[in-house]
């Protein structure tokens, strides 16, 4: 089935980053927690950067099968 939702998602990563930064900027977190947030934030930005760099354009063709399911095929 074509409906996997596991792939990397900038939308989600950015929402997470926004949350981390807001928490850090509030200054309400303990040092322990702040360091954790810091680490997480930096890791996330790195993942995003890698995602930007690891760029091979993927193009597929949507093909409807006779049993009404869908398949992604390479473009001929």
């Amino acid at each position: 089935m074509a409906n996997k939702k596991k792939e990397f998602d900038f939308e989600q990563a950015f929402a997470q980053l926004e949350e981390i930064v807001n928490k850090l900027e509030s200054g309400q977190e303990t040092l322990e927690k702040s360091l954790e947030l810091f680490e997480e934030g930096i890791k996330l930005t790195e993942i995003c950067r890698n995602k930007l760099d690891s760029a091979d354009q993927k193009i597929k063709e949507l093909v409807k099968k006779s049993d009404n399911t869908f398949e992604l095929e390479d473009i001929k």
Binding site: F10, E18, I20, E25, S34, I42, T45, L52
Partner: peptide
């Protein structure tokens, strides 16, 4: 996207 990321990063750096 890079600009967004840099923005987040410097906000993280500043708050730490």
């Amino acid at each position: 996207i890079q600009d967004y990321l840099n923005g987040y990063e410097s906000r993280i750096d500043n708050s730490i």
